[in-house]
Simulated scan of single mutants.
Amino acid sequence: MNILFLSIGRLNSILDKGIYSDLLREFRNQGHEVYIVTPLEKRTNKETSYFVEDDVHYLKVKIGNITKTNLIEKGVSTLRIETLFLKAIKKNMSNVKFDLILYSTPPITFEKVIRYIKNRDNAKSYLLLKDIFPQNAVDLKIFSETSIINKYFRYKEKKLYLNSDFIGCMSPANVKFIVKNNTFLKSEKIEVCPNSIEPLEIKYSYEKKKEIRKKFNIPLDKTIFIYGGNLGKPQGIDYLIECLETNRNNKDVYFIIAGSGTEYNKLNEFFVKNNINNAQLFKQLPKEEYEILANSCDVGLIFLDNRFTIPNFPSRLLSYMQASMPVLAATDINTDIGEIIEQGEFGYWCESKDVKDFNKKLLKFTDETDRNRMGSNARLYLENNYTAKHSYEIIMKHFT
């Protein structure tokens, strides 16, 4: 089969590690021809290019800036992506007949591209639903439910869903949400197709961990909790700060926060103003360096804003599970990530508005034997449920 994958994320190589590259590599390894269309932001000063590398076809399309820019430029650039992608596909892939179109949210603005390929090639379309927009923006009060902006994006969201032959959701709660709030869709085309990776074998000796912790000035005699990733409004940074503040005198634990985002400066200001001896804040580290740091820690942290009505399911969970780390998740009540973590016996959950409950759950990780048991469970759950092969088979069952 010829597979077309559309993404606004930078996918530089099929050999990189990540939820999309791992899945596409599985398609390639199974004998399919994979075509990847990704953006080149204007700031790179590079033109649209088409090439083949590692038996995969790449079309990198020059677009405006959509990251590290102001909201106006980001908005205009995002709206133009659809037209620019379509133009580049017509020019560079006119002689390829696609069997399957894969794409993810965000964004929700690929509908014209998908409709064109479906009509031209009689292809099937599969949406990997990773983000329920615009409802997530309404939840965080970025714009109101009655606003023209929300109505426009909701219109685009509905069109995308209708043009998708299948919708793969991250968890059962995601499926329920989409079915309940989009009654115009046939429920049988909505299914669980979770975030997944090709797991690496990660085992650090005590000496190796000691060496890494020494490099980053991290204590050896405390339980190390790490949060890595986006530091923005979806993570509920005020709650995270409150958790750090109430544990500033806790001599048994140590926190590592590593990442970047719109709320990084707020977090940094908290660290600067307060003499926190049991926590460190790192600006976003290079991926390899972050992985080395994360794999020397004891417990992975997940934070989500309490206001969410949509069931988010952060892919950050997979990197913790891959490293055989137990997980402490503080989230809203609508996601089922906490339920899955506790049912799989690889961590604990609390609602992200109750700091006392967070601190109670924190204490459950101070026993090393218990941590090791939960860490082993995390790795086993990953291998049994969240591998790229699982996602590949879920998608391909529609074509066999």
Rank of each mutant, 00 (worst) to 15 (best):
S171M: 08
N92F: 13
F303E: 03
T183Y: 13
I202W: 09
T67L: 15
S104P: 01
I167P: 04
F282H: 02
N136S: 11
I101N: 07
F184L: 10
L71K: 13
V76Q: 06
H390G: 00
R154F: 11
F143H: 11
L281S: 00
Y20A: 06
I302G: 00
P199W: 15
K60S: 09
I257Y: 06
Y348C: 05
M1H: 11
T38N: 12
L40W: 04
G347T: 03
T83N: 15
Q284R: 14
K353T: 09
S324L: 01
Q280A: 09
D357S: 09
R80S: 09
K124H: 13
L363P: 09
N385H: 15
P311V: 10
T335Y: 09
Y206S: 12
L102H: 05
G75Q: 15
R28T: 08
N274S: 00
E269R: 00
Q322G: 03
G344C: 03
F27N: 02
T400C: 07
G375F: 06
K159R: 14
I394F: 05
V253C: 08
L86Y: 06
Y20P: 04
T387D: 08
M170Y: 04
G338Q: 11
E288M: 15
H32E: 04
I149L: 11
I132G: 01
Q30S: 11
L318T: 02
K360P: 01
